[in-house]
């Protein structure tokens, strides 16, 4: 265990600690509702992107349909509340289990495809689910579902301010990152990176490629569903677009890719940059802001794909030694 902790370089460990402290203190320093809301949005984005990162980043299986898991996670607790008055806290695990089941059902046929074909298939499935949910009266159709308006107890996870949500989300983010970190160090993590690099070579070395990819997708789906359920419970409301919409999937991909897909903190860094930017765009452009978001995303996709496929993390890894050398010289 000590070896495990000693692994990141000491400089890196210091920055991780600083980041953790900053995240814990943030809502206490910025107590304004506006800033706390940005904080919660950032954490949610970081959780989603980190969840996507397990299968999309480490294993290189670029799903653009992760909204199916997010949406299922968001809908399930609210549906169980609407139907039978279940507390959201009990509905969340059900949503996670359903997402794992969906991941296996979707993964079995789609993992026969590779590269762009896999991405296209995931988009298609997520869109089908979105359209289906939008016409199904039981789950609220196009209008969607609502959660408890007033908390019957803490298990309803319905709080007045953002502060409790902030710390719940922060704990979940820490959980996702811890699980990812541990897996990264184990055989599973090595296998994922080998699969990303060359499935053919991985199989020739005895890597059970399909099983490993399915496990990665199931885990990724579980965390994406957790993110979705947190979103649904916090907002107290979910509709087909905010649950299953393609923008939900695209955001996960972009946040992770900008920071660095397949790195532990890449998705978090991506969210750290993009969430404030998105909020600023919404503030500047008002109602038309969501359109501007698309434009910004499009631009980012082009820039990453053209110049930095490894994301900012990779860029930093290459630049840091050069900068250090220059600092030494000066």
């Amino acid at each position: 265990m000590r070896k495990l902790l000693a692994q990141p370089a000491s400089g890196q460990r210091v920055s991780i600690c600083l980041l953790a402290i900053a995240l814990v203190l943030y809502p206490l320093v910025f107590s304004d509702a506006f800033y706390r809301d940005i904080g919660v949005t950032f954490l949610l984005a970081a959780i989603s992107a980190s969840a996507w990162n397990i299968v999309g980043g480490y294993a290189g299986q670029v799903s653009v349909g992760h909204s199916m898991f997010f949406g299922l996670g968001a809908y399930t607790p609210l549906l169980l509340y609407t139907l039978w008055g279940w507390p959201p806290l009990a509905g969340i695990p059900v949503g996670i289990l359903l997402s794992i089941g969906l991941a296996i059902i979707i993964g079995l046929p789609t993992f026969r495809l590779s590269g762009h074909y896999f991405s296209m298939a995931t988009i298609a499935v997520a869109e089908l689910i979105r359209i289906f949910v939008g016409t199904w009266a039981l789950v609220g159709g196009a209008i969607g579902l609502q959660g408890p308006a007033l908390a019957r107890g803490w298990w309803d996870l319905t709080f007045r301010g953002d502060l409790p949500y902030y710390y719940i989300f922060l704990a979940v983010l820490a959980l996702v990152l811890a699980v990812t970190f541990v897996l990264e160090q184990r055989r599973f993590g090595y296998y994922l990176r080998a699969i990303k690099s060359s499935e053919r070579a991985a199989r020739s070395l005895g890597v059970p490629v399909r099983r490993t990819k399915l496990q990665a997708l199931a885990l990724s789906a579980a965390f994406a569903a957790m993110a979705g359920s947190l979103y649904g419970v916090k907002t107290g409301f979910i509709d087909p677009d905010s649950g299953f919409g393609i923008l939900v999937s695209v955001q996960m991909v972009i946040f992770a890719a900008l920071g660095g897909a397949g790195t532990l903190f890449g998705p978090l860094i991506g969210a750290l940059i993009l969430v404030p930017l998105q909020t600023a765009a919404n503030t500047w452009f008002g109602g038309g802001g969501s359109g501007a978001t698309f434009v910004i995303y499009g631009g980012i996709i082009v820039l990453i794909a053209r110049f930095e496929p490894g994301g900012l993390f990779d860029l930093w890894r290459r630049l840091a030694p050069l900068l250090r050398r220059r600092a030494h010289a000066a």
């Binding site: 055989r187 090595y190 296998y191 990176r193 080998a194 990303k196 690099s197 060359s198 053919r200 070579a201 991985a202 070395l205 005895g206 890597v207 397949g262």
Partner: peptide, 19 residues
Amino acid sequence: PTTFDDMSVLANVMVGAFL
């Protein structure tokens, strides 16, 4: 040759060793 290019030499060999 189809080496795992994003990984170090040791990590490449470890993928084999894990079998």
